[in-house]
Write a protein that binds this DNA or RNA. Structure first.
Lengths: 217, 217
DNA sequence: GTCTATAGCATGATAGAC
DNA sequence: GTCTATCATGCTATAGAC
C-alpha cells in the first residue's frame, strides 16, 4: 500500500523520539536509531538532513501531541467553579489528579512527555516554542487562580506554589529509574501516583488557605 | 613546592567535576577536561586510568564533600524539639530553609551538588553509595518525623510529602538555566529561594496538620 | 611524571550505483 | 527512494622518548 511510503518518515520520528526521550540527544547515535527503526543509516539523512533536524522533528511532534491536563484546560472546562473558594479548591484538585494521571498512565511516561520535560534540562532551539505553547498558558492560568484567592501575592510566592506540582512531575519523569531502584521495583505504579496526587493537591489547597474538599480530608 | 605535585590530581578532579556537573558525562570529552585543567590529555589516563574512573573519583569527592542540611542532621541538632507538635513544625521549617540555603547559596548550585543530583537521572556504579550515605539517613529521619504526628500514615503519603522538598530542589538544580530564561535573568537569586523555602515549609507543615510557626503565617 | 605521536574505533555525513 | 561503500572527524586510550 502507498501508506508505507509515507510512514517511513513518521516511523523514524517515533523511534528516534523514544530513544531521545530515554537517553538524551548525545547518548543516541544515528546508527542506533536506524537499527531500531529498521531502516538504513542513510535514510535518516535523506529524510531529515541531519541528526539534529530529526531531533527537532521529534520534539515538535512531541510538543504538538502531548496534550496533558493543566490549569489552563481545567479552568476552561470548569469556568463556573472559578468564582468560589470551594470551586477553586476543586479546580486545583482536578488539575493535580488529571496531571498525574495523564503523565503517568502508562508503565512509564510517554516519550512525548519525556522529550518535552528534557527541554527544561537542556533547552534546544525549540525551547521558545515549548514555552509559548506548553508553559505560558498553564502558568498564567494558575497565577490567575492564585490571585483570585490572595490578591496581593508576590510573583515568587505564586511561582513556588505552582512548582510544587511541576517539580514533582519533573522528578518522577526524569528520575523514575533511580527512584524505583531505591524504593523497590514496581513501587511507582498507578496507585502510587494517585497517592502522590492526593498529597500534592492537599498541600496546594492548604497553602492557598482554601477549604479542603471532602474526599481529601 | 611539593604541593604542586599532589595538586595536579586534585586539580583534575575539581575541573572534571565542574564539567561533568554542568554538561553530564557523555557531553564532556577528555580533551575538554585537559584543556580546562591546563594539563595534557595523557595526564588524565596516567593519574586515573580512564575517563570513567575520573568521573567516579569526582563523584565520590562530591558525595563526601557536599554536606547539606537534611532532616537527619537538623533533628540531631534539635532533638529536644522532636517531642511536640510546635517543635516538629520548627524542625520542618529549619530543614527546608537550611536545605535551600545550602544548595543555592552561591550564584548557582555547587558542582558537588549538581553531580550528586545528576545521579538521580543517570545512576552510575556509585549510586548505591549515594543512596546509603546521602538519601537513606535523610528519608528515614523524615519518615520518623512524619510518623510522630500521623502514626498510621502510608509509605506513599510519607514519600510524596518528602518529595515536596526534594523535587523542588531537584528542579531548581537541574533546570535553572531554562527557568531563568523563562522567568527573567537574575530572577533566581537568594531572595527567590527564601521565598520558595517559605512556601515549601508552609505547605509541608500544613499538609502534616501541624501548627504554623508565627513567622510563616 | 610529563611530553609527542598515534593507534583503534565510533561517530555524523556523503557519493554514487541501482 | 533505497542501498553499499566510504570519508572526515573526534573520541578514548596507549606507546615510547625524555
Amino acid at each position: 500500500m502507498g501508506e508505507n511510503k509515507l510512514k517511513t518518515k513518521e516511523h523514524l520520528v517515533y523511534s528516534a523520539g523514544e530513544l531521545f526521550a530515554l537517553h538524551g540527544f548525545e547518548s543516541v547515535s544515528t546508527r542506533m536509531i536506524a537499527e531500531v527503526s529498521g531502516v538504513k543509516l542513510s535514510a535518516i539523512h535523506y529524510h531529515f538532513g541531519s541528526k539534529e533536524k530529526l531531533y527537532v522533528a521529534a520534539l515538535s511532534y512531541a510538543v504538538a501531541h502531548d496534550p496533558c491536563a493543566d490549569f489552563s484546560s481545567i479552568i476552561a472546562e470548569n469556568s463556573a467553579l472559578f468564582s468560589t473558594q470551594e470551586g477553586r479548591a476543586e479546580i486545583i484538585k482536578t488539575t493535580v489528579f488529571r496531571s498525574f494521571y495523564d503523565h503517568f498512565k502508562g508503565d512509564s511516561a510517554a516519550w512525548t512527555t519525556q522529550m518535552v520535560v528534557r527541554e527544561l534540562m537542556k533547552p534546544s532551539s525549540l525551547f521558545p516554542l515549548f514555552v509559548d505553547v506548553v508553559v505560558k498558558p498553564d502558568v498564567e492560568a494558575a497565577a490567575r487562580l492564585y490571585l483570585a484567592s490572595k490578591a496581593n501575592a508576590s510573583t515568587t510566592e505564586i511561582t513556588a506554589w505552582i512548582d510544587i506540582l511541576h517539580s514533582q512531575i519533573f522528578l518522577y519523569v526524569m528520575a523514575k529509574e533511580a527512584l524505583e531502584v531505591m524504593r523497590g521495583e514496581g513501587s511507582m505504579d498507578a496507585n502510587f501516583y494517585r497517592g502522590v496526587a492526593r498529597v500534592v493537591a492537599r498541600a496546594m489547597i492548604l497553602e492557598l488557605e482554601l477549604p479542603l474538599p471532602e474526599d481529601l480530608q
